[in-house]
């Protein structure tokens, strides 16, 4: 009988122990700090957005949110790492449109944005804006196209790199309108903006954040935005679609991603917290100052959007002969 008693005691003990051990897995996510991974240096576009919402995201999650910068390969070093991290929801990546573009450049793509992540939700979108120096003497995008037609192959444009959204966008605009511009790549959007300011190049299809202080300060002239609708921060600036590129729209988007295989309940919890943080007036205001418009979504809708974007830019890079070349 003594033996049986011991067995019962041992099993009871084991059961208690098992409950304790299993506790973390079944109890509510999150129960320790969450890391928000940024794929670029502090001060970059995604970093500003991550830090602008980390406080409110943390309040909504009920746990501290730590921003971690892991720069490299246009954010893809961090993206690849998060996609392969433990699927427990504690490493969240603030992904950008570069996930859907830059991943197709190397010979072996580091990941497929559509299938290698658990998609949490959309954060914001930032359209591109075509800027020129006020000294160039053009007042509208039509003027600029006309000038480019009269000087074929003489005007230069900057971009943050071969195969960037800005490069592909300008290339598409040139093809549709039958103009010839010379591409001058720079290291990043800020250097590309400086090139227009100094007159080294004539035009830049800029991301909003580096351009907006100069548009407001009058040192750069905004000719058109790349979003489907006019951008709330620049209501008087027409879209490319309503002027020289009918039907065209392309925006830099931002969203949160977790490792492939993260349980749906965790993704749901994070999505709700994210959307709550993004509804905060302070966050909206800070995003606005950075040139971004807050956008929310369900995990499913954003996942579908990412898949569409991924195939769109993959195709575009293939047409340019850039896919799988690095």
């Amino acid at each position: 009988m003594k033996d049986l008693k011991q067995v019962i005691m041992a099993s009871a003990g084991a059961l208690v122990l098992a409950t304790i051990l299993a506790g973390p897995a079944t109890s509510a996510y999150p129960e320790r700090p969450v890391t928000l991974v940024v794929g670029s240096v502090p001060g970059s576009g995604p970093d500003v957005l991550a830090r602008s919402m980390s406080e409110e995201f943390s309040q909504a999650l009920g746990q501290p949110v730590i921003v971690e910068n892991k720069p490299g390969a246009a954010g893809n070093v961090a993206a690849a790492q998060v996609s392969r991290s433990k699927p427990d929801g504690y490493r969240v990546f603030i992904g950008t449109i570069n996930m859907a573009i830059a991943t197709w450049l190397p010979k072996t793509p580091p990941f497929d944005p559509a299938t290698d992540f658990a998609v949490v939700g959309r954060v914001a979108s930032i359209p591109n804006v075509i800027v020129v120096s006020p000294k160039l003497g053009v007042k509208s995008i039509e003027d600029f196209i006309a000038m480019a037609k009269s000087k074929p192959g003489q005007l230069n444009y900057s971009s943050p790199g071969v195969g960037s959204l800005q490069h592909m966008g300008t290339d598409a605009m040139s093809n549709i309108n039958g103009i010839k511009l010379v591409h001058v790549p720079y290291k990043g959007g800020k250097a590309s903006t400086t090139a227009v300011l100094s007159g080294e190049v004539e035009m830049f299809m800029a991301g909003m954040p580096p351009a907006i202080p100069h548009i407001k300060g009058g040192t750069l002239l905004a000719l058109a935005v790349s979003s489907a609708e006019r951008f709330p921060l620049l209501p008087t600036v027409p879209t490319l679609a309503e002027t020289v590129m009918p039907g065209y729209s392309a925006e830099a988007w931002y969203g949160l991603f977790m490792a492939k295989g993260t349980p749906a309940t965790i993704v749901e919890t994070a999505n709700k917290a994210l959307n709550k943080a993004l509804s905060n007036a302070m966050v909206i205001e800070r995003f606005k100052a950075a040139g971004a418009a807050v956008q929310t979504s369900t995990p499913g809708a954003f996942a579908k959007f990412v898949a569409t974007e991924s195939s769109r830019w993959k195709k575009n890079l293939e047409e340019l002969g850039l896919a799988g070349t690095r």
């Binding site: 970059s44 500003v48 830090r51 954040p209 100069h214 407001k216 300060g217 800070r286």
Partner: peptide, 19 residues
């Protein structure tokens, strides 16, 4: 890079560095 970081700190506070 450090200056870019400082600019973003200003931007978060709603101050646009520039002319």
């Amino acid at each position: 890079a450090v200056m870019a970081l400082m600019m973003s700190a200003l931007i978060i506070h709603g101050i646009q560095p520039g002319p």
